[in-house]
Simulated scan of single mutants.
Amino acid sequence: MPKNSAPAHSDSARPGPAARPGNTRRGLLFGGAAVSATALLAACTSNEPTTKDTPAADSRPTADTRPGKKVTIGFAGPQADHGWLNAINENARNRAEKYTDVTLDMTEGSNDTATQIGQIQTLINKKVDVLVILPADGRALTQTGLAAMKAGIPVINLDRAFASPQASRCYVGGDNYGMGLSAGRYIGEKLKNKPGAKVVELAGVDSLELTRLRTQGFDDALRNYPGIAKVARQAAEFTVESGQAKMAQLLQAQPQFDALWNHDDDQGVGALRAVAQAGRKDFLMVGGAGARSAMDAIKADDSVLKATVLYPPTMSASAIDLARALGQGKGIGGIAELEIPASLTLYSAVVTRDNVDDYLPTGFK
């Protein structure tokens, strides 16, 4: 990810349940393991009898693939200049290909707001049935979402939240506060019986709301473990280079600690380089986001990296399922409501050596 660009994760996403800090996102929220997030969407139905689904190629749950009303879904996202964003596009494309009744019209993607607005306006002019939009800048794209909704095209706002709830029919995103909470709980359980345990934090870009939320979730979790102290925090920039440089500084300043919470697996690649160069093996590391490289390292169990907390790019596959259901006038299986929810927040599962094989198909490069 370019040094000064917005990170692959939501730069304005609102976390988890309404009680969580910083969240004003409306609507019904759902939690579930990242791999099973789309299980909520299994068997998208109207009044049709349910049948067993054909398993997806990667064995993850998939919605009812029986042909229904044909739906054209417009998909607009930012430029895929980061592994997570590229995985977002791939998950959307692969999901759409599972349906014979879905046509996916995907833009090239751009980090330039004016360009992305123009791309979405083209999709509106084509009169697509549903729009899925991952904005380069949620606030800047709000008026475009409003315009689509006014034109009668329902919008699914993916990850980076619009400034107005009226700009979309449904929000689908990850849980930044929940990432920190899950990381803190995992580390807390590992160290709860160690007197005087110390932890450090390698955060993301401090000017971003998502970084603040991840730190806040982490700190809130650690409050449940009074014997554990966070002794240092260093902000990086979601890049390999910054991860290596900032981790080297942490290692020099902190000659002894027991655990590290790193916000992003891309910068974690650099962090692991710094750890190896320093010859340190005296602590455990928890990463963030769910990169394939992190999962491979966890499975190999040959480094300090023992877990990563997901920010699942499978959310775009869920968005395609929801868009199809919207276009066909259906609800989703597993809940009583006749309509799709107003909001779907994915759970930040912790991937460890014990469950890594389940999550490997979701790991992004």
Rank of each mutant, 00 (worst) to 15 (best):
N176K: 06
V356Y: 05
G174I: 11
S303N: 10
G118I: 03
E339I: 10
G77F: 06
R95G: 00
L213G: 10
L272Y: 09
D264H: 03
K150T: 12
T51K: 06
G174Y: 08
D282R: 05
N125A: 15
L344A: 15
R212K: 14
R169D: 04
L146R: 11
V205T: 08
G180P: 05
S36A: 14
A236R: 04
L191A: 06
L134W: 06
K69A: 12
R95K: 05
T107P: 06
L272S: 07
A221N: 06
R139H: 09
A221D: 05
G174R: 11
A57L: 03
S343T: 15
S110C: 08
M247L: 04
S164Q: 08
G178R: 09
P361A: 13
Y225D: 05
T308A: 01
V275Y: 07
Y225W: 00
A248Q: 15
Y177K: 02
F75Y: 15
A151D: 09
T51L: 02
D129P: 06
N47A: 14
V172L: 08
M247R: 04
A87G: 07
T103S: 11
V286M: 09
K69F: 00
A232F: 03
I124Q: 03
G334N: 07
Q256K: 13
R185H: 12
P78A: 12
A325W: 08
I73L: 07
P15T: 15
R273Y: 06
V102G: 02
T113C: 03
T142W: 01
A8S: 15
Y177Q: 05
Q234F: 04
L250S: 10
R160S: 15
V309F: 04
D175N: 14
N47M: 09
G270L: 04
R273H: 09
T308M: 01
L284E: 14
A336C: 00
A37R: 10
S110A: 09
T72W: 05
G27D: 07
